[in-house]
Amino acid sequence: MRSHTQPLSYRLIVPNGYPESPDALPLVLDSPHSGTDYPPDFAPAVAHGVLRTAEDTWVADLWDGALEQGVPMLAARFPRSYIDANRACEEIDPQLLDQPWPTPLPDSAKVRLGKGLIWRMLDDGTPLYDRKLSHEEVHHRIQACWQPYHRALDELLSAAQARFGKVWHINCHSMPSVAGAYATDKPGLVHPDFVLGDRDGSTSDPAFREMVAQWLRARGYEVGVNDPYKGVEIVRRAGNPAAGRHSLQLEINRKLYMDETTLRPNEGYARLREDLRLLVAAIGQWTREQL
C-alpha cells in the first residue's frame, strides 16, 4: 500500500500499482467524516468529548478489508464539525458570520438545521460557538480542507475511470441508531441497519444500489433506500451514471459496531468488519461483470 498524507486535509491509502495493477478494482471508497485532527484555530465552545459525537467514528477502519482487495480509500483528517466535506462550499450559514456574505447564499435544508458547510450546532442542538466567524476563517477552512479533499477524490475517480472505462464509488458514513433533534428532517426516527442513497437514482445506475441492498439483506440486515438519507454533496458531485460514474452513499447504524455513548467498539464490530470485506469482494466481482 502507498499512503499519502496532507496536513489538515486527508489520508489516502492506495494499493500498490493502482489502478494499473491486475488486482485493481474499478471501485473507490471515501470517508469524509472520520477525521480526528482538530485544528488549533477551531476554538469551539464545547468540550472535545462532545465534539466527537459528530465524527463517523471507526468508519474508515471498518472498511480496511477493501484495501487488500485492490480498492483505494480516501479519509478526511479534519473533523466534520470544523468543516463538512459533504456539503456544497456555498452552503454557508449566515447566522455564524460576523458580517454579511458578499454574494447571495442558496436556500439549504442543511443550513436551516444548523448543519451547513460549517456547523452551527450538534445533532442535539448544542451550539458549537459562542462567537461569530470571520470570512477569512471560512475561506481558510475551504482552501485548507474542503478543496484538497474533493480534488483528491476526483483524481482517484478519474484515474480509475481512465483505466476501466467506468468507476463505482461508495461514500462511507455512519448514523446514530435514533435520529437526533437536529440531525435530519425526521428527528426521533429509528434507523435501519443500513441506508443506501443515490439521490433517487440520479448519481448511479440503480442496479448498483440494488446489488448492494440485496447482498446486505441476504446477510440478515435491514436496509433502507433513499430514506431518510438520499445522499448529499459528495455523491452529487461524483456521480454521473451517463458518463460511467456511479456513486452511492452508504450509512451504517452505529449500534451495529460501537457503544454510542463511549464510542468504543462493541461485540458486533468484528462481524461487521468481516461483512464489509465480503461486500467489497462481491461488489468487485459484480463490477468486473459490468465492464
Rank of each mutant, 00 (worst) to 15 (best):
residue 2 R to L: 14
residue 8 L to R: 13
residue 10 Y to L: 03
residue 11 R to V: 06
residue 11 R to Q: 11
residue 19 P to F: 00
residue 20 E to Y: 07
residue 23 D to A: 07
residue 25 L to Q: 11
residue 28 V to H: 03
residue 30 D to C: 08
residue 32 P to M: 13
residue 32 P to E: 04
residue 34 S to G: 12
residue 36 T to C: 00
residue 36 T to K: 01
residue 37 D to V: 14
residue 47 A to Y: 01
residue 48 H to P: 02
residue 53 T to Y: 02
residue 54 A to C: 07
residue 56 D to N: 03
residue 57 T to A: 11
residue 68 E to R: 09
residue 71 V to R: 04
residue 72 P to R: 02
residue 73 M to Y: 03
residue 75 A to I: 06
residue 77 R to T: 14
residue 79 P to A: 04
residue 85 A to Y: 11
residue 90 E to A: 15
residue 90 E to G: 07
residue 90 E to C: 11
residue 96 L to S: 06
residue 97 L to G: 14
residue 106 P to N: 09
residue 112 R to C: 09
residue 113 L to P: 07
residue 119 W to I: 01
residue 134 S to V: 10
residue 136 E to L: 06
residue 136 E to F: 00
residue 137 E to R: 00
residue 143 Q to N: 08
residue 145 C to F: 02
residue 147 Q to S: 05
residue 147 Q to I: 02
residue 147 Q to Y: 10
residue 150 H to C: 01
residue 156 L to Y: 08
residue 158 S to T: 15
residue 160 A to D: 05
residue 168 W to T: 12
residue 170 I to G: 04
residue 173 H to A: 04
residue 174 S to D: 07
residue 174 S to N: 08
residue 175 M to T: 14
residue 192 P to K: 13
residue 193 D to Y: 08
residue 195 V to G: 13
residue 220 G to V: 06
residue 221 Y to R: 08
residue 223 V to Q: 10
residue 248 L to H: 09
residue 251 E to G: 05
residue 253 N to V: 03
residue 253 N to G: 12
residue 254 R to G: 10
residue 263 L to K: 03
residue 272 L to N: 10
residue 279 L to W: 10
residue 287 T to F: 01
